[in-house]
Structure formats: C-alpha cells, structure tokens
C-alpha cells in the first residue's frame, strides 16, 4: 500500500488508471457480448464461403463488396447472423423498392441460403446470433409478465395487442400477429429499421421469451366478445356503429314509416 501511495501522484498514474479502466470495461463488454453471440448453430467454412457468394451477388450493390456499406445501404460488419436471418427471412431484404421502410414479402431465398448468408455476415465481426430454440418456445414463457413488458416497451408503436401503428413520415410499426417466434426474437435483438434494440441487458432472453409468449397468446386466443374488428380500438368501433348500426336503424325507421301502396 505504501508503494501505491507513494506513486499515486506519478505522471504516469493517470495513464495507468485509464488503461486499467478501459481494460475492465472492455473485458466486461467482451464477456457480455460473447454471451449474447452464443450461436445456436455452428457455421462451417463452406457456409461462409457460399454465403459470401450469395452476398456478393445479391447484397453487395448497396451494402458494399465487403459489407462495409455504401451511401445506399449500411455496413453490415457486426450486425450478426440474427439481423440477416430477420431481414432476409421476412423478405424485407433484398429491398424490393425504396420507400419509407422495407416491406415484408415472400422470402427470396431458401432457409439454407439464408443461413449461409448469416454465416458470412457473422464471420465479419461479432454480433447477435440466431436465437436458440429454448428461447423461442412460447409455452415456456410467462404471458402475464410478457404483457407488462410489452405494454411498457412495445405497445407505444405496435399497439397493446400488436395490431401495429403509425410512425412518422410514412413509416409504421407492423402488425405482429403473424410474425414467427424467431423473427420476433430477432427483431427485439437487432432493432430492424426504426425499432430500438432490446439487447440482453435490456430484456434478458427469458424476458424476450415472455414477450413472445404474450404476443402469441393475444393473437391466437379466441375472441371472447365476438368479431375483433381488427383490434384497433374505438375508431373501428365508431365506424362500425355509424356505418352498420346507425345504417340498420335508419333502415328500420324507413321500413316502419313506409306506407303500403
């Protein structure tokens, strides 16, 4: 201790302290990130090679030959396999047309090709991996806990039961009822388009599973009260009462006041 006390005003002390601090945060970060990149599937060198070919043919125009990004598309180093699996797996990529945001369409590639492209992008730098199956099993999640998380983190844009909603300038948060468990997880993990990233420090994999369980529960449960009218709330109900309810009422009034001729 005496040694430390004697040297604490040494000119190099600050540098040493900074170094120690950086090493510790960096080390801790590495530990956490490797944690989240724990890959569900191991990619072979051949996957990476095939993936690179597909990438160069289909993606490089916008994302650059080495996925370094161009002015038409972001760099993909470090986005991880999950991002590729989500974007290509939901058909958003390759982009069909430019617009406020990428649209869902029938995926253009097979599962195997998507996995190869994921392998290639994952090989460029560490990033979130395709989630493991145990976190995608909605039956193991707690929908009530997920509901609380969903209302706090997701409902703002996606609506309380995931019916979707508007964002600024033509962008929108899509309806979640038809989205697969894997893509729900990946969307939370990678924050595609306008969505914020919910990494494992925000929402643990178990919490993400709870959110998935909630989304599955509310989109698959039978509606207790009859037709859901899109689960859009009072606007749909108001339209219904004017265009169906009141129209029927006026029909009745006309019928009742009609004279037999």
């Amino acid at each position: 201790m005496k040694l430390l006390a004697a040297r604490r005003r040494h000119p190099m002390a600050l540098v040493v302290l900074l170094l120690v601090g950086l090493l510790m945060t960096g080390g801790a970060y590495a530990v956490f990130t490797t944690n989240s990149t724990a890959s569900a599937e191991e990619y072979t060198a051949q996957d990476v090679e095939e993936g690179e070919k597909l990438f160069v043919t289909n993606c490089a125009t916008c994302h650059g030959m080495n996925a370094e990004g161009t002015e038409n598309g972001p760099g993909l180093v470090g986005v991880g396999a999950a991002a590729v699996d989500f974007q290509v797996g939901t058909g958003r990529m390759p982009l069909q047309m430019s617009g406020p945001q990428a649209q869902v369409k029938t995926p253009q590639f097979s599962e195997e090709q998507i996995s190869q492209m994921s392998a290639y992008v994952a090989s460029l730098g560490p990033g979130p991996a395709v989630p493991e199956d145990e976190y995608l099993d909605a039956s193991q999640g707690d929908p009530a806990a997920g509901g609380g998380l969903f209302r706090t983190n997701c409902a703002m844009c996606h609506n309380v039961v995931g019916s979707g909603g508007a964002l600024t300038r033509g962008k929108y948060a899509p309806n979640l009822s038809e989205v697969s468990e894997k893509h729900l997880y990946e969307a939370m993990q990678t924050g595609p388009q306008n969505m914020p990233i919910f990494n494992d420090a925000n929402l643990t994999p178990e919490q993400k599973r709870d959110v998935i369980a909630y989304v599955r529960e509310v989109s698959e449960q039978p509606s207790a009260g009859g037709a859901k009218l899109g689960s859009l709330g009072p606007v749909a109900e108001g339209l219904f009462i004017w265009f169906f309810g009141l129209a029927a009422v006026i029909g009745i009034t006309v019928w009742l006041s009609a004279r037999s001729k």
Partner: peptide, 30 residues
Amino acid sequence: LISGFFTINPVWNYGPYDPSPVSAGTQPDW
C-alpha cells in the same frame, strides 16, 4: 345482435392502467 357478435372495448387487451405506457392507436370513443 351487435353485442353478441362484435367485440367492443376488450378491456382485457389493454392491461391495468399505469401512467407510463401509451398504446399506439389510443383513441377516445367516437
């Protein structure tokens, strides 16, 4: 007939009130 076949205000969807969350598409009655 309407009440038997068409849902209105499915309160169970919205969850308990908490001042922090707001759902997309939050509107009053017409």
